[in-house]
Each structure stands twice: as C-alpha cells, then as structure tokens.
Amino acid sequence: MLGCSYSALAVGEGASCSRPCGNAALLGRSKLQQGFTLIEVLVASAILTAVVSIMTMLYQSSLAAERRAEASLRSSTAIPFVIDVIRYQLRTEQEQQGEGVFQGLKYHWYAEVEKRERGYVHEDLLEDYPGLTERYVLWNVTLEFEGRPIISYKEFSW
C-alpha cells in the first residue's frame, strides 16, 4: 500500500488496512464523492451576496458624497463673486434687493440699513455738498442660494 501512513508491521503481515489512503483520506471523502455539497454552495452564495451588497452600498455612498462635495465646492467658489456683485449694486445702483444666477446657482439677496453716518465734512462744505450728510451706510445683507443655508453678513458702502 503505497502512500498509506500505517506500516504493514502495525497492522500485521499480509493484512490490509481499512483506513482510506491518499487525497480521499485528506479530504474526508471517498473517491466517488466529488464536488461541493448543497450546504457549502449555499453558504458560499450567501457570503458572495453579502460582499457584493456591501461593495454596492459603499460605491453608491461614495458617489453621493462626491456629488455633495462637488455642489459644495461649486457654491463655495461662487459666493465671493456674488458678494462682489451685491457690493457693486449697493454702492453704485443703491439697490436693496436682487437676484440672479451665477455658475448655474440661483441666488436672491436683500439688504437693510443698519446705520447711516455722515463722517467728517468741514462746516464750510455742508452747504455746497448736502448729500454728504449720510454718506456712510452699514448694511445687513442676507444672501440665499438655492439649496444652501442662508448667509448673513454686513456690508459697508459710501
């Protein structure tokens, strides 16, 4: 019996060993039994399904996070430019509200006067320049982007 781990001396001369030998002995199966049992296939299928489901959820959540980050970045880069537009409209056009679209983002803003000051004007010039009496204005500005939190800030104009 080649490949048997038992020696002929242990069993006896001329006697045969009843234990299976070779690969079948290592696997615990007879030579006629080949392949996987139904339980093994079901367990492997369940594990594969769980791994595929987890990977799909991870992929979907990473795509959603990427979309949120892209939208946040787009609105974050638009905010300074929109604030410059508002500043220009407050200082030159004296408008107190407005709306527009910048980089595909809709926005609406409005401003309320918090305080007006005239600053220093020499007494001899007050009669010649009456418009300088309330020259400096401090505004409370509220800026609303579509789908973003409201931004409130103060703007100074003259």
Score class of each variant (00 low, 15 high):
residue 132 L to P: 01
residue 85 V to C: 05
residue 114 E to S: 11
residue 115 K to I: 00
residue 97 Q to L: 09
residue 114 E to P: 04
residue 104 G to T: 08
residue 146 E to Y: 00
residue 146 E to M: 00
residue 120 Y to T: 01
residue 121 V to G: 00
residue 92 T to G: 05
residue 113 V to G: 07
residue 139 W to Y: 12
residue 126 L to Q: 13
residue 96 Q to Y: 05
residue 135 R to Y: 15
residue 91 R to M: 14
residue 89 Q to L: 09
residue 132 L to Y: 05
residue 104 G to D: 08
residue 103 Q to H: 11
residue 123 E to T: 04
residue 121 V to P: 03
residue 73 L to E: 09
residue 71 A to N: 13
residue 72 S to K: 10
residue 67 R to P: 00
residue 68 R to S: 12
residue 148 R to V: 14
residue 122 H to C: 08
residue 139 W to S: 10
residue 80 P to C: 00
residue 76 S to T: 09
residue 127 E to L: 14
residue 150 I to V: 15
residue 114 E to K: 10
residue 106 K to M: 09
residue 107 Y to M: 08
residue 142 T to W: 04
residue 81 F to I: 09
residue 108 H to Y: 06
residue 148 R to Q: 15
residue 110 Y to P: 03
residue 129 Y to H: 03
residue 82 V to P: 02
residue 117 E to S: 07
residue 92 T to V: 13
residue 131 G to R: 04
residue 135 R to T: 02
residue 133 T to A: 14
residue 113 V to S: 13
residue 140 N to L: 14
residue 100 G to P: 10
residue 66 E to Q: 06
residue 88 Y to V: 08
residue 136 Y to F: 15
residue 124 D to M: 03
residue 89 Q to W: 03
residue 119 G to T: 01
residue 89 Q to F: 06
residue 148 R to G: 05
residue 104 G to I: 04
residue 106 K to S: 15
residue 138 L to I: 07
residue 127 E to H: 12
residue 83 I to A: 00
residue 118 R to D: 09
residue 144 E to T: 08
residue 117 E to W: 01
residue 110 Y to N: 12
residue 103 Q to P: 03
residue 144 E to G: 03
residue 78 A to R: 00
residue 90 L to V: 11
residue 71 A to T: 06
residue 136 Y to R: 01
residue 114 E to R: 11
residue 68 R to I: 08
residue 120 Y to C: 00
residue 136 Y to I: 11
residue 82 V to E: 00
residue 148 R to P: 05
residue 63 L to V: 13
residue 69 A to I: 00
residue 146 E to D: 15
residue 137 V to W: 07
residue 137 V to T: 14
residue 84 D to G: 12
residue 133 T to Q: 09
residue 72 S to W: 12
residue 146 E to C: 03
residue 130 P to C: 05
residue 106 K to A: 15
residue 68 R to A: 12
residue 86 I to W: 00
residue 149 P to F: 03
residue 138 L to P: 02
residue 141 V to R: 00
residue 110 Y to Q: 14
residue 64 A to E: 15
residue 111 A to M: 07
residue 105 L to E: 11
residue 138 L to W: 09
residue 119 G to Q: 06
residue 66 E to A: 07
residue 68 R to N: 08
residue 100 G to C: 08
residue 117 E to K: 07
residue 113 V to N: 07
residue 129 Y to W: 10
residue 114 E to I: 14
residue 81 F to Y: 12
residue 84 D to R: 09
residue 94 Q to L: 15
residue 98 G to S: 10
residue 129 Y to P: 02
residue 73 L to H: 06
residue 117 E to T: 03
